[in-house]
Structures are given as C-alpha cells and as structure tokens.
Simulated assay, not measured.
Amino acid sequence: MSSGTTELAWFKSSYSGSQGDSCVEVAITEQAVHVRDSKDVTRPAFTVGREGWAPFVRFASGY
C-alpha cells in the first residue's frame, strides 16, 4: 500500500448490502482510483490510474 491511502475518502457501492460483508471500498483521487477489501483494510490497496479505471471495470464486469 502506498503511504497515504489510509487518509483517503473510502466508500462502498450502493449495491453493498447492509451487512457490509464481501465488499470492496473505492477511493478516487485526481491521479488514481484505489480499491481495497473492506473486511481487511490493513492489506495493500489496488491502485489504477484514472485512464485505466474504465477498461478495468469493463474487464471485471465481463463487458
């Protein structure tokens, strides 16, 4: 995890259930989009440049 990712404004998808399990959290900055496991926020975050976010989401969703 790069230093500073703990200070980011993390949020969960509105599709996440009220139990909060099996979710990912996302934080968006001017330079990148950060993704982490909401169950273990101490683990390293996955970071992708903003220009790579849309292709990543298309790939991950199967479209």
Rank of each mutant, 00 (worst) to 15 (best):
M1D: 08
M1Y: 05
S3L: 14
S3C: 12
G4S: 07
T5E: 08
T5R: 03
T5K: 02
T6W: 10
T6K: 11
E7Q: 13
E7C: 04
L8R: 04
A9F: 07
W10P: 00
W10R: 01
F11N: 11
F11G: 15
K12Y: 06
S13H: 07
S14D: 13
S14R: 11
Y15Q: 15
Y15G: 14
S16I: 07
Q19W: 08
Q19Y: 10
Q19P: 02
G20P: 03
D21M: 11
D21S: 14
D21T: 15
C23E: 09
C23N: 03
V24D: 00
V26R: 03
V26M: 03
A27R: 01
T29P: 01
T29S: 08
E30S: 12
E30Y: 06
A32H: 13
V33L: 09
V33Y: 09
H34M: 04
H34K: 04
H34I: 03
V35G: 01
V35R: 01
S38T: 10
S38C: 05
K39H: 11
K39G: 09
K39L: 12
K39N: 13
T42E: 10
P44T: 07
P44K: 02
A45S: 08
A45F: 02
F46M: 05
F46N: 01
V48N: 00
G49V: 05
R50Q: 10
R50I: 02
R50K: 13
E51D: 11
G52H: 14
G52M: 09
W53F: 11
A54N: 15
A54W: 15
V57T: 14
F59Y: 10
F59Q: 08
G62R: 14
G62P: 08
